[in-house]
Structure formats: structure tokens, C-alpha cells
């Protein structure tokens, strides 16, 4: 349908956009092997020593541990809450059912600064009188709040695609609610839970804005990067951390493309 010249123009424009998306990432990847400490271009020589230094850097190690801790906690809470809400919405018709989808998406749809401030103010007035200060706990609560939506959407989509008659059959054969959940619902939603969990983990691992409002003195990886951007001496280490994060993002991409394949965004025709 498209003329030959239109096809060529489209191909060129596509190439240009891809170059625009990838060149900045490539530049950072090169700088991670830069011999010099200062970030000028062109780079003078290549070295692997920053990778070793980053690996042994206590700040980096600590930040990675904190981030993993926060992401695991947030993912687990979001998994439980998102699954419960998805089960309720899938099984029952009740007043306000339509608003639940809206409610779960709200923490991620509103500007991060609003969510961050709201949680900050609440933590200050509700938690601090009980002696809970800003730290890992408040980070996890904040992250879990905006991670619920990925779990909810994934599990609900899976439940909608699977026949409810299987669960009824399980009940007819004498299984009680717990057995049906254990032997039918859980295996049925297992991959959706895994996929949603990885996306939630990635979302939490990368979050900056809400975290700046809820972290207190705890430093996650994004907060560590943010702080060290203003320290020229640390930039070579930041480069290494940056490239590692780019490489790690291939994992959620793989998962996301699998989900897309299932939901028909990617087609295998």
C-alpha cells in the first residue's frame, strides 16, 4: 500500500528513532571502561578497574542490599494485596467493583511527588508517634502502594482468561476453599504471579521520587546514584552501576515481552 519511497522514509525514521533511544545508553557503557577519572570526550583509553572498584565499594554494596530488601518487601505485600483484590473482583459482583481498578492505578497515575508528599505527611503524623521513623519500613509501605497495580492487573487478566468452572468442579469433587486455592487457583495463576512480581520488583528497584520522600537515612540504589552524581570523584563508579542497571533491565523486558505475547500485543503469526 505504501509507496516505495514512503517505505524507505519510514525505515530511515525508524532507524533514527532507535539511534536516539540507544546512543545515550551506549555512551554510558563506553564511559564505564574509561581510563581517566574525569568524564571528557573523547576517552583516552579503556580499563576494567572501575568494575572491580565498584564491586568492592561499600556504599554500592549497601545500596544494592537495601534496594533488594525494599523491592522484595514491597513485591511480597503487593502480591498478597493485589491477588486478594483481583480474586474479589473476578468472583463477585458488588457495589463499587468498577472503582477498584481506578483505585489501584491511582498511586501510579498521580504525579510521584503527590504520592510521595501524601505518604510523607501521613507517616510523620501516624507512624512517628509510635516510634516508627523513616527508613526501610516506610520505603516498603510506599513502594507496595504503587506496586499493587501490576500484581492486580496481571492476576486479574489471568483469572478472566481461565474458566471459573474448574474451581467449581474442584468444589464438586469435595475440595474445600483452601484446597481449591492450593491445588487449582494457585497453579493457574502461578506464572501471572511470577511475571507481576518481577515487574513490581523492577518498578520498586528503580523508583526515586516517592523514595526521596519516604527513605529517611536509608540509601537505595537510585538514591545512591542521585547523591553521587554531584561527587566528581565517584562518577566512574556511578558509570559502572549505571551500565549494570541497563543490563539488568533486560530481565523485566524479557518478562514483559512474554506477557505481551500472551495478551496479543506481540503476535506470532
Amino acid at each position: 500500500m505504501e509507496t516505495r519511497s514512503a517505505r524507505i522514509a519510514l525505515r530511515l525514521a525508524t532507524g533514527f528513532t532507535l539511534a536516539f533511544l540507544y546512543l545515550p545508553l551506549a555512551v554510558i557503557a563506553l564511559y564505564a571502561f574509561n581510563q581517566k577519572r574525569i568524564q571528557t570526550w573523547p576517552i583516552s583509553g579503556l580499563t576494567l578497574s572501575w568494575w572491580q572498584k565498584a564491586f568492592h565499594n561499600p556504599g554500592v554494596r549497601d545500596a544494592v542490599l537495601r534496594s533488594v530488601e525494599a523491592a522484595l518487601g514491597a513485591t511480597l505485600i503487593a502480591m498478597v494485596l493485589g491477588t486478594l483484590a483481583a480474586l474479589a473482583v473476578n468472583r463477585y459482583r458488588f457495589f463499587g467493583r468498577e472503582t477498584i481498578s481506578f483505585l489501584v492505578i491511582l498511586p501510579i497515575a498521580l504525579p510521584g511527588i503527590v504520592t510521595g508528599m501524601a505518604l510523607n505527611a501521613t507517616f510523620r503524623t501516624v507512624f512517628e508517634p509510635f516510634g516508627v521513623s523513616f527508613g526501610m519500613f516506610t520505603i516498603i509501605v510506599g513502594h507496595a502502594t504503587f506496586c499493587i497495580v501490576v500484581m492486580y492487573n496481571n492476576v486479574l487478566a489471568r483469572l478472566r482468561r481461565s474458566a471459573g468452572s474448574i474451581e467449581e468442579a474442584s468444589g464438586d469433587l469435595g475440595a474445600d476453599t483452601w484446597q481449591t486455592f492450593r491445588y487449582i487457583t494457585l497453579p493457574l495463576t502461578k506464572t501471572a504471579l511470577l511475571a507481576g512480581g518481577l515487574l513490581a520488583f523492577a518498578l520498586s528497584f528503580d523508583e526515586v521520587i516517592v523514595t526521596t520522600f519516604t527513605a529517611g537515612a536509608v540509601q537505595t540504589v537510585p538514591l545512591w546514584i542521585l547523591q553521587n552524581l554531584s561527587r566528581p570523584n565517584q562518577l566512574p563508579i556511578v558509570n559502572v552501576v549505571a551500565v549494570s542497571l541497563i543490563l539488568l533491565s533486560a530481565i523485566p523486558v524479557y518478562i514483559a515481552s512474554r506477557i505481551a505475547q500472551e495478551s496479543g500485543i506481540l503476535r506470532r503469526r
Binding site: 525508524t14 532507535l18 533511544l21 540507544y22 545515550p24 545508553l25 555512551v27 554510558i28 564511559y31 568524564q39 523492577a202 528503580d206 526515586v208 537510585p222 546514584i225 542521585l226 552524581l229 556511578v238 549505571a242 542497571l245 541497563i246 533491565s249 533486560a250 523485566p252 523486558v253 514483559a256 515481552s257 505481551a260 500485543i265 506481540l266
Partner: peptide, 23 residues
């Protein structure tokens, strides 16, 4: 192409801003 577009979407936000700072 979908995978190639998802990849920068899931890369760390700060890393991308930082890359532009360097550029």
C-alpha cells in the same frame, strides 16, 4: 522492535538522565 523499545523503557530513569548529563 517491541523488545528494542521496551528495553530503554525499563532501564533505570536516573541512568538515562545521567547519560544525557554526560552527553
Amino acid at each position: 522492535l517491541v523488545v528494542l523499545i521496551l528495553m530503554p523503557l525499563w532501564s533505570s530513569y536516573l541512568v538515562k538522565v545521567y547519560a544525557w548529563r554526560v552527553i
